[in-house]
Design a protein around this nucleic acid. Structure first.
Lengths: 142, 142
DNA sequence: ATGTATGCAAAACATTTGCACCTGG
DNA sequence: CCAGGTGCAAATGTTTTGCATACAT
């Protein structure tokens, strides 16, 4: 099925691209750095270069198969596009990420952009905080 | 007056720090990269190293004298803190930046964070689009 | 076959750090 | 005087690129 995805966007169906797509589909959490993906590839026995990972991710981004996000901390994270837009809440302590979509915020953004004479193309909304997630190693720590 | 600012946050009043503060105060647009500031310092005849610019900006950020923002494109931009929180709209074509504050969005963010069990600390909201600003070289270009 | 993709190593960036020297209080 | 600040060069971490080889169609 994903072969179709690749062909559809004009990319040859190659092993590195299929494996990277597979990892992006399977991975939980869904948000991975290029380095994460590279490591997962090595762990699953694939001999794929880090440069290829970056190249493929950039192509996938151009084809809107993946989304590149810039959380705090320098490295970009990549997430498989699943059709529906959403924003993110990131735990500053453990890195846990939650997704959300809020119609009120989306609408206000459009209004604000229009008020400022902008034709809005895209936006980045990231909330940073402390989660109470059961897996957060910092949970309830003072 | 800015000397007071520096002393208040426990930093010695040195020439590089004062000059950088001055540039952040004078600069229009208000949003500058470290490299921008470095260049402006050189242009005004100051022999200040880029490493110092980064060090000073990081200290200013820690002291909440400046805010560091991550727009698209790798380099961070710095802006003098002026007491009131605001978010940004950035023109993808010309780089023009506008600021805005929206109570509805602020409120929704808090509610959403609470719903997800997060104690919100901070957020980053950036709208990307095309401005119709008179200085935008891409204005009305198809 | 042939245009693309890949791997590797090297380059390119933005940013940080080590260290000897300088400077503000 | 001396803790803290600075300049320079070198190191770091992430991402990109050049090039020779390998692969998909």
């Amino acid at each position: 099925m994903e072969n179709q995805d690749l062909k559809r966007v004009g990319l040859k169906v190659t092993l590195p691209r299929m494996k990277i797509l597979e990892i992006l589909e399977m991975a939980r959490p869904r948000h991975l750095t290029a380095e994460d993906i590279y490591r997962l590839l090595l762990e699953s026995g694939e001999e794929i270069g880090l440069a290829t990972v970056y190249r493929v991710l950039t192509q996938f981004e151009a084809a809107t198969l993946v989304q590149r996000l810039h959380f705090e901390g320098g490295q970009a994270v990549f997430e498989l596009a699943r059709g529906h837009h959403h924003d993110h809440i990131v735990c500053s302590e453990c890195g846990h990420v939650e997704e959300f979509y809020d119609e009120v915020i989306e609408t206000r953004q459009k209004v604000i952009a229009r008020e400022h004479g902008f034709e809005i193309r895209d936006h980045s909304l990231i909330l940073y905080g402390n989660c109470q997630h059961e897996n957060c190693p910092y949970r309830n720590v003072e």
